[in-house]
């Protein structure tokens, strides 16, 4: 136990502040792309401070999953922004979908979407989730996430880094005010 306490003291708090907010940020910023401009104001207000995420791997190589897991590590600590991974789609407000949608995962993805209560947002993570990426044209691929469920937000990258994921989500939720403070 004492080893552990020593280690806890030695490690301290690792959570890093977000980089300054890009001054010239517009909707066209390559960081994220919001489909149809922006989320409804009501959804933003409702989910802005508390967003429960259900991750669905619809066909990714597991790299994007590893980066999403990394969002929870002490460096990024997405919980400080009210982002939280939940175990059941019933508890979720946001589906974070990775990978090109494979033929075999299309139905499970749809079922997950249906199981999630409204209002909800769908985030497509990574280049492959946008249009199939390198896997485009394969017999086993249906294509981007929007082929199966309506997408609200794309976060590009192959895979996007945790920081890109975090800032992308916060921009979409209109929470990224980017003062260099640890919490917005």
């Amino acid at each position: 136990m004492w080893d552990m306490i020593r280690k806890i003291r030695q490690v301290g708090i690792l959570t890093e502040p977000l980089p300054p907010f890009p001054a010239e940020y517009t909707q066209q910023d390559p960081q994220v792309e919001l489909v149809g401009g922006e989320l409804q104001q009501r959804t933003r207000i409702l989910l802005g401070r508390s967003l429960h995420i259900r991750q669905v791997d619809a066909g990714s190589d597991n790299a994007a999953e590893l980066e999403i897991i990394a969002l929870g590590n002490p460096y990024y600590d997405m919980e400080r922004f009210g982002l939280h991974i939940v175990a059941s789609p019933r508890h979720a407000d946001c589906l974070m979908v990775t990978g090109p949608v494979t033929r075999n995962m299309a139905l499970p993805l749809l079922r997950t979407y249906e199981a999630t209560p409204d209002p909800k947002i769908v985030v497509a993570v990574g280049d492959a989730a946008r249009d199939g990426g390198i896997f485009r044209g394969s017999y086993a691929i249906i294509g981007g996430v929007d082929q199966v469920v309506p997408v609200d937000l794309y976060i590009p990258g192959d895979p996007p880094t945790p920081l890109e994921l975090l800032t992308g989500m916060l921009i979409a939720l209109d929470r990224y005010r980017g003062k260099s403070s640890r919490r917005e």
């Binding site: 806890i8 490690v11 301290g12 708090i13 690792l14 959570t15 409702l46 989910l47 401070r49 508390s50 429960h52 002490p74 600590d77 919980e79 400080r80 009210g82 939280h84 407000d93 209560p117 409204d118 209002p119 640890r182 919490r183």
Partner: peptide, 20 residues
């Protein structure tokens, strides 16, 4: 080694659940 959720996070969660 993390900051953790904001103080009022459970309230935000409740408010959101009630609106869904």
């Amino acid at each position: 080694g993390r900051l953790g959720p904001p103080w009022f996070q459970p309230y935000y969660d409740l408010a959101k659940y009630f609106q869904k």
